[in-house]
Design a protein around this nucleic acid. Structure first.
Length: 289
DNA sequence: CAATCGTGGGT
DNA sequence: TACCCAAGATT
């Protein structure tokens, strides 16, 4: 099954910029952080501009936090930008400006968790380690376990289930990890899987079982409209678009509920995504001491 | 373990 | 139109 998948990947892998030969560990790391919960299409242009502007970790680390948050644009979850900036500082200071290849070292860097650490180890350094994202969880749930979809995540179990699928040779294992993700992203999708185009359809336990519906616990649907996430996004968008610190009156117009507005502004300050200047205005961090 | 944290395109 | 969902990490 994996051999078939590898052949399919050789022929059908998307031509994504961070997959080009010569992409550094830094390039891979930046792509992986940006891709956390953010679609490929939205990441591509930002990743290209970041690589041109900050080709090595020390270059990013030399920027202010605010400039990094501004360049993050509307990728969403802007705390990722702050963490990546911090990680770049550690890599520049402690690792010779080279992204570490050891999973445990990677796990110690801000913003890098179980998925991202192994993605970097596999895709940048060709290591054999289970790279489990939402795509892989779904593919394994279907093809191996015969379920309609993955149940609640369990990092330990998910990694164990994936690890046994990997070929013994590190290079092939790393490619298999990319192929599993690719299959989940373009063929074995969440909504309407394209089983007719699937290279492993004849081995798929889910198809062989007649594609039974998912029967696990219902997945919590994330609301957005009216949440603090929306309000924080609106507030930060004002500051991203402002070269100078903004008076609070400019922030007050983005949301009518003053209580929620102030709570969100406070949380942004706590998160370090916003700073208050000495004269009481608000700005992205690090630019207007 | 469960809640929280942005944003916008597809259906 | 609502709702789903997208290469997760942190607390």
């Amino acid at each position: 099954m994996i051999d078939t998948l590898l052949d399919w990947f050789d022929e059908n892998a998307r031509d994504l910029p961070w997959r080009k030969a010569g992409t550094t560990g830094w390039g891979v790391l930046v792509s992986e952080i940006m891709l956390q919960q953010t679609p490929v299409a939205r990441v591509e242009p930002i990743w290209l501009s970041w690589m041109a502007r900050w080709p090595v970790p020390s270059a990013l680390a030399a920027e202010t936090q605010g400039e990094v948050v501004r360049a993050w644009g509307k990728l969403g979850y802007p705390r990722r930008a702050l963490r990546l900036h911090a990680a770049a500082g550690v890599i520049a200071a402690d690792h010779g400006d080279v992204v570490p290849s050891d999973v445990d070292v990677l796990l110690g860097l801000p913003g890098i968790g179980a998925y991202t650490a192994r993605a970097v180890a596999a895709f940048a350094y060709g290591q054999r380690c289970p790279v489990v994202d939402t795509n892989v969880r779904r593919v394994v749930a279907r093809a191996v376990n015969g379920a309609g979809d993955a149940g609640p995540p369990s990092t330990t179990r998910d990694m164990a289930e994936t690890e046994v699928l990997l070929p013994p040779e590190p290079a092939r294992a790393a490619k298999a990890s990319a192929a599993l993700m690719e299959l989940g992203a373009v063929i074995c999708t969440a909504r309407a899987p394209k089983c007719a185009d699937c290279p492993i359809v004849t081995d798929c336990a889910w198809v062989l079982a007649g594609r039974p519906a998912y029967d696990g616990p219902a997945k919590a649907v994330q609301k957005f409209a009216g949440t603090d996430r929306q309000v924080r996004g609106l507030l930060l968008d004002v500051l991203r678009g402002s070269a100078e610190p903004a008076p609070k009156t400019r922030l007050d117009v983005v949301w009518s509920d003053a209580g929620q507005r102030d709570r969100c502004l406070h949380s942004l300050l706590v998160d370090g995504l916003v700073e208050q200047t000495s004269d009481g205005r608000f700005a992205l961090p690090g630019e207007h001491r």
